[in-house]
Write a protein that binds this DNA or RNA. Structure first.
Lengths: 257, 257
DNA sequence: AAGTGGTCTAGACCACACT
DNA sequence: GTGTGGTCTAGACCACTTA
């Protein structure tokens, strides 16, 4: 039958990564995708960097250009690379703008995007308590960095939030005198950690004494409570954040698809 | 140069739809996708139906099987078709289970999915007021169907919601004696309207008299307010819904990607 | 055994960006 | 002009489902 078909002869790929030869547990393009994710995760490819062309990668790994393309397109969907026609493929770089647009779902009722500032940022280090260990999958005795701050919009306090980070992932953070307003781009640039995904649980709460004071409102007012966990490329929990939000003339937007 | 290449000779496709010949404003696969969406929207292909194979569609439309594949895969991502290896491609059929899983984001704090029941459903017809006309893009004088109900979970009132529907899209709805618990599958089956996407705006509110009575709680308690607009395949607004939710031991879950 | 979607390859041309 | 990603085609084989 097959006169032209060259069977899956994938032995001895020049790259260090080994592709499953026969009865692949995963399709080739998925294996290739995993190779690329690994290169980004481990810093072989750095944020903002131009990676080799599809043909070069195909030759290096020993698959067809179409297979490399499928893997790269999947990475583009996951926001791990950016493809620019005529220029090449770049490792996605977190910027304050992009991160705010991607993970910050509060909007003005008119539709405008909210760009909050940070105030009264405080930071401390402690042994993780039980809840923190559960949320961040830490062992007993592990240390965390606790950050609390008030975020303002249009001059008014809007969000009172507490952020908990595993100290091991952020060795130098405690010595920084200031913490930037947007954290995730800082995580990537300074600590090589790409925040890739997470989940947020929303409930309504009445303002307690602490929130009322921080947000400059009367106790008892209804507020939105956002309980967020974010993960790195290797699925390790990297941040637990609780944001108490005063939504006056604003809302949390969810797209349903 | 090209000895083997057959250029884009796409004139006179056997199907009624005309593909752009030269300088296509959209890529071929996008045009093919639009053709398929149209067939689903207009009922040429009905929910649950097995559609022709990729090769048949390719021959009919006059493109390669790979192009049809790309279009169908895009539709699968949008939940408009389901592909089953070895069986074929089916038009996605709304079922109560699938719709609840897809658009209902309330979960128990333990992680379990909430499956609410409906109580005290009331229905009325009226001229759309200004806000309803804006939300549903209706002309002055258009009529709407207003539905209100209380949804319970584990025997307790959880959601008090008001649903507004353009009457023109649901000619027989007003004569139905009961309205089903899950609406979107009913819309598709009875009125040929596939709810494809929408958005939900979340705020926190204090329980007023009406909500307190409906949810059997004290006035003033903090509640989540979901303000949702849903659209049909042709982008027409099809539903405006406001749900006031008492989240005790539950939360609204958002995936961040 | 036949038919379907899923994977993989190979090659051509197009659109875009930089030199 | 050269090189990149984007589109489109064609064909082979694989995995799954049904008859």
């Amino acid at each position: 039958m097959s006169a032209t078909r060259k069977p899956n002869s994938k032995e001895a790929s020049p790259s260090g990564a080994e592709l499953t030869t026969a009865l692949a547990a995963q399709p080739l393009y998925a294996q290739v995708e995993a190779i690329f994710v690994d290169r980004i995760r481990t810093g072989v490819w750095r944020p903002g960097q131009l990676i080799p062309s599809e043909f070069e990668l195909a030759r290096e790994i020993g698959v067809s250009q179409g297979t490399v393309r499928k893997a790269l397109n999947a990475l583009a969907v996951d926001n791990l690379v950016e493809r620019r026609q005529g220029r090449g493929t770049f490792v996605a770089e977190h910027t304050p703008d992009k991160m705010l647009f991607r993970f910050f779902n509060l909007f003005e009722d008119g539709g405008g995007h909210i760009e909050p500032d940070s105030q009264n940022t405080r930071m401390s280090i402690a042994r993780a308590n039980k809840e923190e260990r559960e949320r961040l999958k830490l062992d007993v005795g592990a240390e965390v960095i606790r950050v609390s701050r008030v975020r303002t919009h249009a001059g008014k306090p809007m969000i009172y939030e507490t952020i908990v980070l595993p100290r091991q992932f952020f060795p130098g953070l405690v010595k920084e005198k200031t913490i930037p307003n947007t954290l995730y781009d800082h995580f990537q640039k300074e600590y090589g950690l790409t925040v890739s995904h997470g989940e947020e649980r929303i409930t309504a709460v009445a303002a307690g004494e602490r929130e009322a004071k921080a947000l400059e409102i009367a106790p008892g007012l209804p507020l939105i409570r956002l309980d967020r966990t974010m993960y790195a490329l290797n699925e390790a929990p990297i941040e637990w954040r609780v944001s108490i939000c005063l939504l006056s003339g604003a809302h949390y937007l969810v797209r349903l698809r």
